[in-house]
Amino acid sequence: MDKLRQLVLLVRPDTLMRWHCDLLRRRRAAATAARGPGRPRTVRSIRALVLRLARENPSWGYRRIHGEPAALGIRIAATVWGILKEHGVAPSPQRSHTGRADFLRDQADALLACDFF
């Protein structure tokens, strides 16, 4: 009976545990390599929506632009800041800033419109 037990144990238990740990390590590495690092890319249509919201509403900041699609149930994977920066769109104070000449021109148009009434 002792001879039979010696023949069955061809591999030591610590070797078997090392093989098991190696197998688990390789499985985890394969799972993360297939998926890729970081967040998934945002769909093109959602990127276009973010850019359109920024263009049409120059006084809106990043949080407001992110909140509007979120209220509709649209999830944005990337940050709005990253999307706007990638496309060269400035932050909201720089987009909505009107210069002195623009301000005076708008006021003059309003005054002229009032004079005709």
Results as ranks from 00 to 15, higher is better:
M1F: 10
D2H: 09
K3T: 10
L4K: 11
L7P: 02
L7C: 08
L7D: 12
V8E: 03
V8R: 03
V8D: 00
V11D: 10
V11K: 13
R12N: 07
P13Q: 09
M17L: 11
R18L: 11
R18E: 08
W19G: 04
L24N: 02
R26I: 03
R26Q: 08
R27T: 05
R27D: 12
R28A: 14
A29F: 07
A31L: 13
A31V: 06
A31D: 10
A31G: 06
T32I: 07
A33I: 08
A33E: 02
G36N: 04
P37E: 07
R39Q: 08
T42L: 03
V43H: 13
V43L: 08
I46M: 10
I46Y: 11
I46G: 02
A48V: 03
A48S: 10
L49D: 00
V50S: 02
V50N: 02
L51S: 09
A54W: 06
R55M: 08
R55A: 15
E56S: 14
E56C: 15
E56I: 08
P58Y: 10
P58I: 14
P58D: 15
S59R: 06
G61P: 14
G61Q: 06
Y62K: 06
Y62A: 06
R64C: 04
R64I: 00
I65Y: 04
I65E: 08
H66D: 09
E68I: 10
E68P: 01
G73Q: 03
A77Q: 09
A77S: 04
A78R: 01
A78N: 01
V80Y: 00
I83F: 02
I83K: 01
L84K: 03
L84N: 05
K85N: 02
K85L: 05
E86W: 01
E86N: 05
E86P: 01
H87V: 01
H87M: 03
G88N: 09
G88C: 10
A90L: 14
A90R: 15
A90K: 13
P93D: 14
S96P: 10
S96G: 11
H97C: 04
G99Y: 08
R100Y: 13
R100S: 12
A101C: 01
D102L: 11
L104M: 08
D106V: 13
A108G: 04
L112K: 11
F117G: 11
